[in-house]
Design a protein around this nucleic acid. Sequence first.
RNA 1: GCCUGGGUGGCGGAAUAGGUAGACGCAAGGGACUUAAAAUCCCUUGAGGCAUGUCCUCGUGCGGGUUCGAUUCCCGCCCCAGGCACCA
Length: 858
Amino acid sequence: MKYNPKELELKWQARWEKEGLFKVTEDPEKEKYYLLEMFPYPSGKIHMGHVRNYTIGDVVARYKRMRGKNVLHPMGWDAFGLPAENAAIENNSHPAKWTYENIENMKSQLKRMGFSYDWDRELATCDPEYYRWEQLIFLKMLEKGLAYKKRTFVNWCDACQTVLAKEQVENGRCWRHPEQEVTIKEMDSWFFKITSYAEEILEYCDKLPGWPERVLTMQRNWIGKSHGAIIRFPVAGSESVIDVYTTRQDTIFGATFLCFAPEHPMLRELVAGEPQEKEVLSFIERTLKVDSFIRTADFSVKEGVFTGRYCINPATEEEIPIYVANFVLFDYGTGAVMGVPTHDQRDFEFAKKYELPLRVVIKPPDRDLTEETMEEAYVEEGILVNSGPFNGMRNVDALESIADYLESKGMGYRTVNYRLRDWNISRQRYWGAPIPVIYCDRCGTVPVPEKDLPVVLPLDLEMRPNGGSPLPFEPSFFETTCPVCNGKARRETDTMDTFVESSWYFDRYTCPDYDRGPLDHEKADYWMPVDQYIGGIEHAILHLLYSRFYTRVLRDFGELKVDEPFANLLTQGMVCKETQECPRHGYLYPHEVRDGKCVHCGSEIIVGNSVKMSKSKKNVVDPEELIDRYGADTVRMFCLFASPPERDLEWSDQGVEGSFRFLNRVWRLVTENLENVLHVPVYGGKEELSGNLRKLHRKSHQTIKKVTADIEDRFHFNTAISAVMELVNEVNQYLSGSGEKDNLAWAVIREAIEVTVLLLSPVVPHICEELWQMLGHRESLLTVSWPEYSEKALEVDKRLVVLQVNGKVRDRIEVPASFGRDEIQAEALKSKRVQSFVAGAQIKKVIVVRDKLVNIVV
RNA sequence: GCCUGGGUGGCGGAAUAGGUAGACGCAAGGGACUUAAAAUCCCUUGAGGCAUGUCCUCGUGCGGGUUCGAUUCCCGCCCCAGGCACCA
């Protein structure tokens, strides 16, 4: 009988579905295990990255289930987003239609992979029954001041025709459009006050032992907490005061100028009527045209303009000039900085350029510094000089003393600053959840009353051919009445950032049909937190940070009991493949290459480095084609076998072939020996075994032990699979050897075969179900327990001991397992090879490691 | 510049608590079966050396160190990937 993956896989998928084997409900008797993979954006087809991600998850889900856990393993759709709008314009269709068609297609692809999802819990974030609860939470946030609106400078992407959050800007470019430079616009936006939770989110970075260190490091850096002080600089000839944030209050006596960020609102009033007014205003205008990333990048030149005004250094009481400078960030600290050119490199360069005075206030321990000869700022530790009462103090100590001094004089105060900014959630897009707010000329900004939720996104409107949201042009949507005064009013036409939906979808999976609130507390409390979350590293900041924030918001609203959404996080590596490039036709798909030549022109192909699979590089492999050719099991197996999950996976067509060969070997092992094993029971450990039969029995149990540890402790499926391969090799060796083939032998062989099938079943469930059934079992493997190993089976009577002389391996001997150190040492010294290396020399020392080695030092 | 990872055969990778480096797989070479091919099975395969062996020497990015013994621990460096970056 030939291994026919397609037929058997479809058969078992149908049976799993028919018997509802993946459905799960709360069961207080069982230990729960919530396993979650990051849900996909319904782009149309699944790609190899999805396949890898979801295969890893499915193995864990199936394994935990066999270990008796009550496993929640849901799947859904991150269904709002810009690609739907773009595709709709391109195909003259509608985002909703495009999205739901894609969902249907991808769902059938996922089913074809045999993933054990409880599809009853499926959700799509574009469903009003989902986003209505998000709107409700928005209203609560608004009430508590956690959502607010402000006019501010925002990052704008022309390609998206919308605002981006700070997290969505990468190197000054849009995260979705690497070719699109982000520009700065001043506009009204809605914000979530994530900064209120900055401290807690940061603190809990130390309480997430199940997260990869690098993700936590990235988050800590992103939050960017620093300790410092606000120092108040009075403006000369005015009542105004300029607040400056610094972490280096120890250098206050060296501050010889002050700089504003160009966006700073105080600037305009300061320069009003000054001779420099025109110059300053034109500088501001010029600077703000350039995005803050560009203008603050390493390569851009530090520039500034004198405002004509002075302020007073509160420590020295001297008047110092006020500048506006391109390198000062408006949204960090107070948007103004004090300039200490002697001890800050940026300030040094700026002062040199504009000939501002320098004053050394920290003296290096080993030399003197003079202002005239300095070539760069001195940023190391040292002793304070020119600092009034603080002279002679170490600068690290002066940080505290000067902070005290400032506070006592009312010239400033200690503070903590974060790099993290509030989350801008307004998007000027159509395909998103409407922000439930109404603007009334008389009553101002009015929340949509709870009873009027959801604010449904209208589906019966046409996309605008040039992109941009149609909502502001759709009176039937935006025209409404004010809930307070009943007068004419206008709806908010911005929608929410799609990261809002993905910040709580995992909570909603616990009760996807609940219609009396966002969450059914009983169910959410049973399942949350997610025990294991699996997804790509690219979400290390965006999605994971937002989710940690939103979880706390829901907790504080009484919707959730947990502090953290994800107890353990596994970030899987990318799927990579080498690129193929034709000198004339550019990147080529694999099918456009034959025998190392371009099928279009016959040119030699240039094989490039292995990089992440992407359509633009055309180095992609379509999972569907592979499934057609080899079956889902082979694809699953290769994804797991090629490398451990957190590392990048190097795609290899031959590797896939190898996985397929192995499954065929397993298939033949069972089918070709079926008659012999069917009429014996699995060896139960009662009869004495000897020789190779004993060895085979031991190998079965060693394999159980190894595979269990590999999956349980570290998700190293590649070594788990290797171990099963070794077991299969050993059975085949026994079968082709001269060992006994009596009933007892077949019982031990049957044990090895069943162990193989059981251990492989989370990885390649279809073929295993089929083989399991052939072996005479009626129940699905989904309901069978994971095998246990027996200590007795692992016992050996002889052990291999390596003999070293001076740390070099010279011989190997077998000794009875019962031997003590002395007996092992005595046996080692008897070795002829050891003797020949020791001959004539004085033995200085003998190290004996039981069961491992003897090292003789001469 | 700072912070994370990582560097092991021709390739993907193993070595989980300092104890036989290279498991398992791929590729390559040789052989068996076959009229032939595919499939399958068996053998060889880190480098070098010669005395061809249960042989010797070298070998886990580089240079030191600790240790009887280091891919593993420590110090200094190089390279690669990712993140942050004029954050005051």
